Amino acid sequence: MAKFINLIKLSVGTESVEGLQDWHDRPRPAGEDSTPRHVTRMWPKREAELLNGGSIYWVIKGVVQARQRIIRLDEVVRSDGIRRCGLIFENKLIRVENMTKRPFQGWRYLRPEDAPRDLPEHRSREEQLPPQLSAALADIGVR
């Protein structure tokens, strides 16, 4: 049994995996390193499991399409004084087999056995299908 857990999150406003990579590649404010991150309101209670090999799986246009390894969690306190969690990722997006996912708020835990498999390297360079077609194929189990 795996000793790690993953997260799954909607990438709101993202049109493609390339768009997600563009978001990660944007310059950071002064004082922040260039590591990709996402700041969230809730701190994961299963932090040790996340940091033991977990990834965040990104849902783009209703389809899980990519993942990134989580490398650390940083405390973030903004001007409102509220403590938040900065999820810090490797700067490598790994494409995964398409899997449809209904909308949800925030992030959720994703057990390793429920996560889509990574695409082989040669398939990750293929031109991506339009999101609606990709979702329809995932719905009927075509990978």
Rank of each mutant, 00 (worst) to 15 (best):
S16W: 08
W23Q: 14
W58P: 00
S124T: 04
A136G: 02
A136D: 03
R123Q: 15
I56D: 01
P29Y: 11
E75K: 14
G106H: 10
L110S: 01
R37E: 03
P131H: 04
M42R: 13
E32Y: 15
L7A: 08
S11G: 08
S16L: 07
P112G: 00
Q128F: 04
Q132D: 15
I71M: 12
G13M: 10
E121N: 10
G106W: 02
G106S: 07
L93E: 03
N6I: 00
A2S: 13
I70H: 05
R78L: 13
N6R: 03
L20W: 04
G13Q: 11
R111S: 07
G54P: 01
V142Q: 08
G54S: 04
L50E: 03
L51Y: 03
G13E: 09
D25S: 11
G62T: 04
R26A: 07
F89N: 01
I56E: 00
W58H: 00
C85R: 01
S55I: 06
D74C: 05
G31N: 06
F4T: 02
D139T: 12
Y57V: 01
I71H: 10
W23H: 14
I82E: 15
V77H: 09
V76F: 13
S55A: 15
W43S: 05
E126D: 15
I60V: 09
G13C: 14
E15P: 03
K92P: 05
Q68T: 03
W107H: 03
M1S: 11
R72C: 00
P36D: 09
R83L: 15
K61P: 06
Y109N: 01
R95Q: 08
D25K: 13
G31F: 03
I140R: 02
E126A: 14
P27A: 09
P130M: 13
P103C: 06
H122S: 15
L51Q: 07
V59T: 12
Q68N: 14
E113L: 08
D118R: 09
G86C: 05
M42P: 10
